[in-house]
Nucleic acid binder design. Structure first.
Lengths: 221, 221
DNA sequence: CCAGAAAAATGAATGACCGTTCATTTTTGA
DNA sequence: TCAAAAATGAACGGTCATTCATTTTTCTGG
């Protein structure tokens, strides 16, 4: 064991090494190229050819980093959803009112979806059938709604259905927004409708959904 | 003019004729095969090869009836949506309470979506990005919600957003249902949540969403 | 600093799939 | 009987994911 040349490494293994660093960089380039391609041309424009050309990397090299075309798409989605999820968690961490947490989360989610073209493609085109997307967003929505139910703030008979509706509404409102003349950000009305859906009174729903929205913390990456 | 041989035909033209009847039959066969293929293998399995094989018709013949692959898919969707829409209209025609109309419509829609595999693929896989689907369902949802707003029954600030949410929720609830163990029909809970969303009080929403659901009239076809 | 082994990169070639076309054959109607 | 209409399916052209024999880069021990 301990074949590393000299540098005293603390625990198990942590020497980056030129090779590793370069490999990581290549992987990052491929993910970045995939993300960009998705933003510019949508999911159908993602071919191995376009990705590798954009990343300035040989076609064959792609398969040293990803199993298949689908694998890289899943990786991009997972990365984006996880990052946003963590930023939302950081934002709502200290809050105590479930309705406020739910409102801020859904507003930010919608706002992100209508502002960032990659999210636009992601949500609308890959949509609901995409495992990665629903698998990562679903649990978060469920959790936030469950908090409201447990604290007596929300009254829904079935959390999973309310969660699915939260998520599905996002898709269609966003789609409608993108196809319209993009007049006004629908985030507040979307959140207000959701609050009513989970049992918050209309007047209160209106007030909560229109509170000043704190900005999202930057991601740690 | 009047080149028809003999048969006294009333107005403009209405002689079916062997040719016309056969052509209609072929078109019907193609639509039917497309529908079946969609039910069995989903949208991506719809190729000209599979459709024509299933209909027992030559590949080339396909293009005597439809412009392209997309055209036949659109035709199937339009047909299905129109048929269901008319049945829903017939059902709710005599009703006066907007909440009941909205509830019955959404319940029937969800029930159809979770019962019929073609609708399943249609709604989930083609989903929200499909022009035909949203173009036909959207206006109906908007109309039903608008009736509620006009009669003071609903309070929503933006009908188009509420309409989009009605439709988008359908997708995701159905998707969740299909991926689960298909335990219980989510139609009632779905409708109840929607009623609350448009401003009906929780107690009333519960009552309305659980009224006995009249069966849908058969279609005229 | 060097040789040579191991790892990674490369891009041309492969093979599969699919929508669409069209020259030819079959069916229909008068 | 024959001309027009419809049907046919082989063939074309294009796209694209994936493979692999070869080249290039990196690492290691001397």
């Amino acid at each position: 064991m301990a074949t590393t040349t000299a540098t005293a490494n603390a625990a198990v293994a942590k020497a980056p090494g030129r090779r590793e660093r370069k490999a990581e960089e290549t992987r990052r380039r491929l993910l970045e190229a995939t993300r960009e391609q998705m933003a510019e041309g949508g999911p159908e424009s993602i071919t191995i050819q376009t990705i590798t050309a954009k990343a300035d990397i040989g076609q064959g090299t792609f398969y040293n980093y990803f199993e298949s075309r689908d694998a890289v798409i899943d990786a991009v989605i997972l990365d984006m959803v996880e990052t946003l999820g963590q930023r939302l968690d950081a934002l709502t961490h200290g809050m105590s009112d479930a309705a406020e947490i739910y409102s801020f989360s859904t507003r930010h989610l919608m706002h992100t979806a209508v502002s960032d073209p990659v999210w636009g493609w992601l949500v609308v085109r890959l949509g609901i059938a995409q495992e990665g997307l629903i698998g990562a967003l679903g649990p978060r929505a469920s959790r936030d709604i469950q908090i409201g139910v447990d604290s007596g703030r929300f009254t829904v008979e079935d959390v999973s259905i309310a969660s699915a509706m939260t998520f599905g509404s996002l898709l269609s409102v966003m789609q409608a927004y993108l196809q319209s003349d993009r007049k006004s950000d629908p985030s507040e009305l979307y959140a207000e409708n959701l609050l009513r859906m989970v049992g918050v009174s209309p007047t209160e729903a209106h007030e909560i959904a229109n509170r000043p929205l704190p900005t999202l913390p930057e991601s740690k990456n």
